[in-house]
C-alpha cells in the first residue's frame, strides 16, 4: 500500500512531531522558519500602528506557541503555519479590542486600586466570565490564595500585566511605561494571561472543591 499524503517522512513533519512531543529545539527551529511568513500576513489598521507593531504580536505569539504546542494536532502539510497564524491573529484581535475599549471609560471592568481579597474575587469572577468555569462556592481567602498561586505559574510578563493592571488597578499608560511595552502589547499579554489563568483555575477547582 502506498501513502498518498506525501508528508509523513518529510523533515518538516519530523520537526513538528518532535515539537509536539516536547522538543523545544525543534519548535524553536519551526518558529524561526515560519514566524516571518506569519508576521508578513498580519494586517494592522493604520489607526493602531503607533501603539502596536507586528513585532509586539509576534513576541506573544512565540510565547503562546511554546505553551500550547502540546495540544497541537497536525492534520495536513501546512497545519503548523496555519496554527501559528491563528495564534497571531487571535493576539492581534485581542490587542485591538483592548485598544478600542481603552478609548472608552470602562470603570466596571476594573478593580479598585490597591490589592485586597476583593480584588482577587473580582478578577476571579471576571475570568469565570470568559470560560465555562462556573464560580460555584467561592470563599474570598481561597480565591486569593488560588489566584496568587496561579499567577505565580504564569510567564513573567503575563504575571506582571495581571498584577499591575487587574489587581493593583494601575492605569494602562503606567503599566506600559513600567513594562516598557506598547499599549497593544499590554492588552495582548493581559488577554493571554487571562486564558492561562482560566486553564489553571479550571484545574485549581479540584483543589477548591475539597475545601468547599
Amino acid at each position: 500500500m502506498s501513502t498518498s499524503q506525501g508528508q509523513s517522512d518529510s523533515p518538516q513533519h519530523d520537526l513538528v512531531r518532535r515539537a509536539v512531543q516536547g522538543d523545544i529545539d525543534a519548535l524553536t527551529e519551526l518558529l524561526a522558519t515560519h514566524g516571518p511568513q506569519v508576521e508578513a500576513k498580519l494586517k494592522i489598521g493604520r489607526q493602531w500602528r503607533n501603539v502596536l507593531e507586528p513585532g509586539d504580536v509576534m513576541q506573544v505569539t512565540y510565547l503562546e506557541a511554546f505553551m500550547q504546542i502540546g495540544s497541537f494536532r497536525p492534520d495536513r502539510a501546512d497545519a503548523f503555519t496555519a496554527w501559528l497564524r491563528r495564534i497571531a491573529e487571535n493576539n492581534l484581535r485581542d490587542a485591538i479590542r483592548g485598544l478600542e475599549r481603552q478609548k472608552q471609560p470602562q470603570p466596571c471592568r476594573r478593580v479598585e486600586a490597591g490589592v485586597t481579597a476583593d480584588s482577587f474575587v473580582c478578577l476571579y469572577e471576571h475570568l469565570a466570565a470568559t470560560s465555562a468555569t462556573p464560580s460555584r462556592i467561592v470563599a474570598k481567602e481561597d480565591t486569593k490564595r488560588l489566584l496568587e498561586a496561579a499567577i505565580a505559574g504564569l510567564p513573567d510578563d503575563y504575571a506582571a500585566t495581571v498584577r499591575m493592571y487587574d489587581l493593583e488597578g494601575r492605569p494602562i499608560a503606567e503599566v506600559c511605561k513600567t513594562m516598557n511595552r506598547s499599549a497593544g502589547a499590554v492588552h495582548m499579554l493581559r488577554a493571554r494571561a487571562h486564558d492561562r489563568l482560566c486553564e489553571l483555575l479550571g484545574s485549581a477547582s479540584n483543589w477548591f472543591g475539597s475545601r468547599a
Binding site: 506557541a65 505553551m67 502540546g70 495540544s71 505559574g153
Partner: peptide
C-alpha cells in the same frame, strides 16, 4: 519567548495539590 516559557515551567511555585495546566 523560550526563556520565559522555560522559566515559568521551571518555577514550581504552586501549592501542593495544584495541578498543572491542560497541556
Amino acid at each position: 519567548a523560550r526563556q520565559q516559557f522555560e522559566s515559568a515551567r521551571r518555577a514550581d511555585r504552586r501549592p501542593a495539590g495544584f495541578e498543572g495546566g491542560t497541556s
